[in-house]
Design a protein around this nucleic acid. Structure first.
Lengths: 349, 349
DNA sequence: AAATTTCTGATTTACGTACATCAGAAATTC
DNA sequence: GAATTTCTGATGTACGTAAATCAGAAATTT
């Protein structure tokens, strides 16, 4: 059997109450006694029974996810995953809430973070916008002792406790490498469709993409970035225009959202010879993969990210260490042959 | 607050003991009473507090993993993941054991399964070998009420409760599709290196691979399968021989283990122009990806599989439903640009 | 109607931890 | 050495469920 607090008390020759004081960092224990108890804990290899502890505490962990509003399918997917996790997490004494703020709006995001701090939640997960107000708000969360993780898009050096998301530079490199190999020696330039160069993850993907393209044996022109604001209509217009202007276009890398517009433009332009790599597996990109309009989709699994964020926030709230290896978010590559069976590509784990 | 058993008892106008009998399927409750309790449960939306239940039961779940012996790196990786999971699972009232049996030995596997049944474990995970003795042993486990999942290689129609592993036909298709696209219009046949056609997962991968190659715009010869028995030395010999015999060889698909031999043969033959796709991310395949000897690695994450198997076995042991979407094992595609940072590619989740 | 069987209620203990209270011991201060 | 402060022990309750026991009620059989 695993050792319990009683065993520690016996071994250390102290009472249960004293063990409790040591374990929970309560005052009222002399240094020597504390040391004796700690030695007993170490000797027995005691680990707290989290289930029993949570039961006794009957504590709930209110966590807040702050996500951009709008019809960005990936963000809506994230929201859906939070709600789904909320269903199952009642068991685990976690209460999840979603707050949406206008996309790319640093002030609104900062305000939402401050709101969560005021509500004394036990953890915050937010899709970061790269702005000083946001950094400041994150600093206030930190000062208030509320763990905060950045989700999808990071804000390094802001005092966030953890970043939950993929390495976007590596994602861009992967896209470049795949596109280069798929194109082989076929000539022609490639276009890049982004949401906005004002978000860090898009900038990083572009950086990685250009680096990988530069490493290819065949030099290939990369056209100026098209910024579609993650908006299908605008993306469609930009791509249509590009198709008309560049008849020998060989490939497209779509590193943001708005892929519905991209697919529509390609279909309208009847250009299924163009090699296309996009991000995020949605109903649209999945369908386009199946028809061959899109050749590969890079994906970060929303379900994984949400669950990882929850685990990390709970660990932080309890002062437990985070197992880094377990919380690394993978970049998935999907081609039509390895599409997951489900309608939305969730495979949990 | 969430409703508790007390609330149910109040609502249904029965005692705690009766609620307990209904909840745990114990006898001694009249049909009408049972219905009343069940109605109360439904009305209140009661869900059992698993943590409290486990605490009260103070039950431990001894689970056994039966894995092939030998130096197959993937299997050793699985074993390592089981041990790693064992560290953390003490909290969760699970005790894990690993039993190794000679690879491809149906009799030994059946015997190991029977041994686990005799020990009255609460769950078995086994890498199946396709043989009637094994099916029979799985049937005995089922008869004894012990949940059993097949791991990595399935044995459909054997009465196993669940399969934890990737869709190997899709894996083969993915390999074929990638290899075809990477090769483009470059001429030359491709070779296939397998472990043994006697294991189902290898057969399935080959099937998918051939299908995908046949779907390619360019027809390409597939040389007769080389069976390396997952053995590095034998694999090396076979590949060396093949390289010498087929000077215009364009690609290799290695669908089993023994990749160390493959890499050695390629290095010795100085043939880094050949496009190679292999399975399982190990130290060797990772290094080969980085140097460019191997172009893509298809991987099933051992950590995910182990954790999934544990979750499924525990759910079965408790009579709980399995969330299929959460237990789907993904096929990862790695190229040198999206290699995970860690030394062994574990990202938990 | 009596005897039996089958159901149901009430009550208690346990799981491992958290947390509070109160009394007594030890250390410190005066 | 007395008074005070600080530490420690003993004890009890709570969390939500499991599981056992025993007594009494209801249904069934004789």
């Amino acid at each position: 059997m695993r050792p319990t607090v009683h065993d520690i008390a016996d071994k250390a020759g102290v009472s249960l109450a004293t063990v409790d004081r040591v374990l929970n960092g309560r005052p009222g224990v002399r240094g020597v006694t504390r040391a004796r108890v700690e030695a007993a804990i170490a000797a027995l290899g005691y680990v707290r029974d989290v289930a029993a502890a949570n039961l006794a505490k009957s504590r709930v962990y209110p966590l807040v996810f702050i996500l951009p509003a709008g019809d960005n399918p990936f963000m809506r997917g994230l929201e859906a995953e939070v709600r789904r996790a909320g269903m199952h997490s009642a068991n685990e004494r976690t209460r999840l809430a979603v707050v949406t703020v206008p996309a790319f709006d640093a002030g609104a995001l900062a305000k939402a973070i401050d709101g969560a701090i005021a509500e004394k939640v036990s953890g915050i997960a937010a899709v970061a916008v790269d702005a000083p107000e946001v950094s400041a708000a994150i600093g206030r969360a930190h000062a208030a002792g509320i763990p905060l993780v950045t989700l999808v898009s990071d804000l390094a050096g802001s005092g966030r406790d953890h970043f939950v998301g993929v390495d976007n530079i590596a994602a861009g490199r992967t896209a470049g490498s795949l596109l280069g190999r798929f194109l082989g020696s076929r000539p022609g330039p490639v276009a890049v469709l982004a949401g906005s160069m004002r978000v860090r993850d898009h900038r990083e993907r572009l950086e990685g993409f250009c680096a990988a393209m530069a490493d290819m044996p065949v030099t290939r022109a990369i056209l100026p970035v098209l910024e579609g604001q993650d908006d299908p209509a605008r993306s469609r217009a930009l791509i249509s225009e590009c198709l008309a202007a560049v008849p020998d276009l060989a490939g497209i890398y779509s590193l943001g959202a708005g892929n519905r517009g991209l697919v529509a433009a390609l279909a309208a332009g009847d250009r299924d010879d163009i090699c296309v790599i996009a991000h995020e597996l949605t109903d649209h990109t999945r369908a386009a993969l199946e028809t061959g309009t899109i050749d590969a989709v890079l994906n970060q699994d929303a379900g994984h990210e949400v669950r990882s964020a929850i685990r990390v926030l709970r660990a932080k709230a309890d002062g437990l260490p985070v197992i880094a290896a377990q919380e690394r978010i993978r970049l998935d590559i999907f081609i039509k042959d390895n599409l997951p069976a489900g309608p939305d590509g969730d495979d949990g784990n």
